[in-house]
């Protein structure tokens, strides 16, 4: 078991380092998307959605079934996003809203219950045949040379899609009336009602958007990890780390956090001595860094200090 695995130092093998960083940025942007979904929900409803990953998992599996049934890829992608959106809205309306004014732990437990529920449902429906299932990517997996390193087209595709999603969200929140209403609701729901904002609809929309963003993340991850009912769990954990790292109420924080976590994960896996740490310790190490960061900034790097609520 004991082996010393230590990759050549970055200056001796810059190509390896570059590859690790770029693929870290690619997975990191997936974490950033899921973290964004978590932040969207946390900002608007003060809920940590532990079922975020499982919602995405369910959508991705549904897409797999649709692809199998012969629907064209772009239609399926569109349906997948719509499905994520609808699932988010549905969850908020049916099981989150009734517990919103109840003790905060209740919401936590409801999302945890949803986590278990969705996971089990997916196992029931899709775990009949062989697992994991292959999920293809429209970008393909060819290696290409970028100036410093070789990366796959799928990684590049991930980066591009993530950028598009972030841009769309940015425009929505900062340059539309709807976004204004959603931000206002997140800051002060009472005053928003007085402005004539339909607060209930904004909350539902927040969950719906999060569901859609999560679905996009799901379809970007699946080609790498393949599909099985737990495939989003690790992603969700890194996304939590990312969201907490950046500050649970800060969308830019979620993006920075996601990229940081993605790169850190890869570097820990590559450049730590194998007999003490090594690749299988990259999750604990990343989480350790997270906890250390929290010690110095309990509200994350970009989070607001909570002063409003007592």
């Amino acid at each position: 078991m004991i082996e010393v695995f230590l990759a050549p130092a970055p200056w001796n093998d810059p190509e390896l380092f570059g590859e690790q960083v770029i693929s870290g940025l690619a997975t990191g942007s997936i974490y950033a998307l899921v973290a964004l979904a978590i932040v969207l929900i946390y900002r608007s409803t003060d809920v940590i959605n532990f079922a975020q990953g499982e919602m995405a998992m369910l959508v991705t599996f549904s897409m797999w079934s649709l692809l199998l049934a012969g629907f064209p890829a772009w239609t399926v992608i569109f349906i997948g996003i719509a499905l994520g959106f609808a699932l988010g809205a549905f969850v908020e309306r049916t099981i989150i809203r009734p517990v919103e004014d109840k003790p905060p732990l209740n919401v936590v437990v409801v999302t945890l219950g949803l986590f278990v529920f969705l996971n089990s449902i997916a196992t029931w429906i899709w775990a009949q045949g062989e697992l994991p299932k292959v999920f293809s990517t429209p970008f393909g997996f060819t290696s290409v040379d970028v100036s410093l390193a070789r990366v796959t087209t799928h990684s590049i595709g991930i980066l591009v899609v993530a950028l598009i999603v972030m841009a769309v969200l940015y425009l929505l929140f900062n340059h539309t009336k709807l976004g204004l209403g959603m931000r206002a609701t997140a800051h002060n729901p009472g005053a928003s009602r007085l402005m004539g904002v339909n607060v209930g609809r904004m909350l539902m929309l927040g969950w719906a958007l999060a569901g859609a963003v999560g679905a996009v993340a799901g379809m970007l991850v699946a080609p790498i990890t393949f599909l099985f009912p737990g495939f989003m769990l690790a992603v969700l954990l890194y996304a939590f780390a990312a969201a907490v790292f950046g500050g649970l109420d800060s969308p830019p924080g979620a993006i920075v956090g996601g990229l940081f976590v993605g790169v850190a994960e890869n570097l820990f896996g590559t450049y730590t001595p194998g007999d003490i740490f090594g690749p299988e310790m990259k999750l604990p190490l990343t989480l350790l860094v997270l906890v250390i960061v929290l010690m110095f900034r309990p509200q994350g790097l970009f989070g607001r200090v909570q002063t409003r609520r007592v």
């Binding site: 099981i95 009734p98 517990v99 109840k102 003790p103 209740n106 437990v109 409801v110 945890l112 219950g113 949803l114 986590f115 278990v116 529920f117 969705l118 996971n119 089990s120 449902i121 196992t123 029931w124 775990a127």
Partner: peptide, 22 residues
């Protein structure tokens, strides 16, 4: 369903208990 998805029952029960008995 019951054999393959015991978690579904568990999850649903958890959600309903919390909704009905805060």
């Amino acid at each position: 369903f019951l054999q393959k998805a015991p978690g579904a029952i568990q999850g649903a029960v958890v959600i309903f208990v919390v909704l009905l008995m805060p």
